[in-house]
Amino acid sequence: MIYSLAVYGPPYTYQASDTAFHFAEALLAKGHELHRVFFYHDGVYNGTRLSVPPQDEINIPARWSELAGKHEVDLVICVASALRRGVLNATEAERYELDSDNMGTAFNLSGLGQLIDAGIHSDRLITFGA
């Protein structure tokens, strides 16, 4: 089956991102396809590449990036949610003439249409709320 996930929770504060990740690993292990993970609301904070957790803790944003690299998952950061919250890639940082960007390269900044598209083109769209 083709799955897509919607993640509303930021890393560390809420369990949502962690639960979604374990679910993603389990569905891939069962031979399903993970088409897209759509990060919405505070979930967009999962897209940072500047997370520095203590050494004995997991780097949640990096873990998503690794999963996407290995299984060709489309990690989408909702652009409207992200810009408000200061999560930007290099293109947007340049557009708004800001001094830096912070998004990981495994993540794609895109619009809400990608959430609807995930619902249309996946057999299952599962929300992990915060």
Binding site: M1, F23, A26, L27, A29, K30, H32, I126, G129
Partner: peptide, 20 residues
């Protein structure tokens, strides 16, 4: 259930409603 079973349940149910 474990995560593997959680995935199996989503295979059997056509829709998932998240209450949060």
């Amino acid at each position: 259930i474990d995560y593997n079973d959680f995935v199996s349940l989503t295979e059997k149910h056509a829709r998932v409603q998240s209450w949060f």
